[in-house]
Simulated scan of single mutants.
Amino acid sequence: MKAAVIVFPGSNCDRDMMVGIEHSLGRKPEMVWHKETELPDVDFIAIPGGFSYGDYLRCGAMSAHSPIMQEVIKKANEGVRVLGVCNGFQILTEAGLLPGVLMRNAKLKFICKDAHLKVENAQTDFTANYTQGQAIRIPVAHHDGNYFAADDVLKGLEDNNQVAFRYCDEAGNVTEEANINGSRNNIAGVFNENKNVLGMMPHPERLCDPQLGGTDGKPLFDALVEALS
Score class of each variant (00 low, 15 high):
1 M>A: 14
5 V>L: 06
6 I>L: 15
6 I>R: 00
7 V>G: 01
7 V>K: 05
9 P>W: 13
9 P>D: 13
10 G>R: 12
10 G>W: 12
21 I>Q: 02
22 E>W: 06
31 M>K: 10
32 V>D: 10
35 K>M: 12
36 E>P: 00
37 T>R: 13
39 L>E: 06
40 P>G: 09
44 F>Y: 07
46 A>I: 07
46 A>N: 03
51 F>H: 09
52 S>V: 08
55 D>G: 08
56 Y>W: 09
58 R>Y: 04
58 R>K: 15
60 G>C: 11
63 S>R: 05
65 H>A: 14
68 I>E: 06
69 M>T: 08
69 M>S: 07
74 K>L: 12
74 K>D: 14
76 A>W: 03
79 G>C: 12
85 V>C: 01
89 F>N: 00
93 T>W: 01
94 E>S: 09
95 A>R: 04
98 L>S: 09
104 R>V: 13
104 R>A: 14
107 K>M: 14
109 K>Y: 07
109 K>H: 14
115 A>D: 02
115 A>C: 11
116 H>A: 07
118 K>C: 11
118 K>R: 15
119 V>N: 03
120 E>S: 02
121 N>E: 13
121 N>Q: 11
124 T>E: 11
125 D>L: 13
127 T>F: 11
129 N>V: 02
132 Q>L: 14
133 G>N: 05
134 Q>E: 15
135 A>T: 03
139 P>E: 04
140 V>S: 00
142 H>T: 02
142 H>M: 09
144 D>R: 06
144 D>K: 05
145 G>R: 01
145 G>N: 04
147 Y>E: 07
147 Y>P: 00
149 A>L: 12
149 A>S: 13
154 L>D: 05
158 E>L: 15
158 E>V: 15
161 N>I: 09
164 A>S: 06
165 F>G: 01
165 F>P: 00
166 R>V: 06
166 R>K: 13
167 Y>V: 04
169 D>K: 06
169 D>R: 04
170 E>C: 05
170 E>A: 15
170 E>N: 11
177 E>M: 04
179 N>S: 10
180 I>R: 03
182 G>H: 13
192 N>L: 13
202 P>R: 07
202 P>T: 08
203 H>K: 04
206 R>M: 04
207 L>F: 10
208 C>V: 15
210 P>N: 08
213 G>M: 08
214 G>Y: 03
215 T>Y: 01
215 T>Q: 09
215 T>E: 15
216 D>S: 11
216 D>F: 03
218 K>T: 04
219 P>V: 13
219 P>R: 12
220 L>G: 00
226 E>G: 03
229 S>G: 14
